[in-house]
Amino acid sequence: MENNTKISIQDMTKVFYKKNSSVTALDHISLNISEGEFVCLVGPSGCGKTTLLRILAGLETTSVGEYKITEGKENRPLQSMVFQERGVIPWLTVEENVAFGLKMRHLPSELIKERTSYYLEKVGLENFSTLYPKELSGGMKQRVSIARAFANDPEILLMDEPFAALDEQNKFILQEELLSIWEETKKTVLFITHSIDEALLLSDRILLMSSQPGRIIKEIKNDLPRPRNIEQIRSDHNTAGHFVDIWKHLQEEVQKSRK
């Protein structure tokens, strides 16, 4: 790869061991992600894609192998995760949730205030800043989760099926909102999903994973010009080809894991 590799993973293997039985979740994964690239990891459920993300997020350790996230500006966190909507902390207000990462880093309160309100406005929650999450809809909670990660201004963003629990309409709206914020910041993103449409809409590159043990078995470059929207995904001929390709592949993997 070129010099601007942001995330590099080498021969990463993760085994879960439990009283005489072991499960290989990740099997010799190697991959490189460039600066500013938006990569989607697609695979059948239980293929270890969440494990991979959790390792990068510092929530899990590798068994063997290593990874590196290239440091950039000083005083900037390496990674932040966009959790699913239930990761919004219920006893903190919307504003406190968005400011969470910044507060944990004990940045000057002026800066926290400024960045928090910037991203609250970005996701359209500036009028809801003093509410508690219980008063928000699912889509709004997910916006809080996104704003929290972007406000933290990390080197890379990790997203674990952030839109999985949302209804169709909300999902489309949030996907496009995510793209517009991302295009402004050009962060490196690793995004996990099992939705093919979502991967095609968001990513520069799609990595397909096999079912257990998790390996990366195919890579698809997604050159659809940006800015994109959901109609293009449905009408573009090339993209339709990718869709069928990924679909067939996932079918196969699901069949395999059933045997």
Binding site: A57, G58, L59, P77, Q79, S80, M81, F83, Q84, R86, G87, I89, L92, F100, G101, K103, M104, R105, R148, N152
Partner: peptide
């Protein structure tokens, strides 16, 4: 809920912050 523990860890909460905020 363990997801809040994950959030705190991912966003680098110190033990004191973890205690007070989570």
């Amino acid at each position: 809920d363990s997801i809040y523990l994950d959030v705190a860890k991912n966003y680098g909460a110190s033990s004191k912050d973890f205690f007070v905020k989570i």
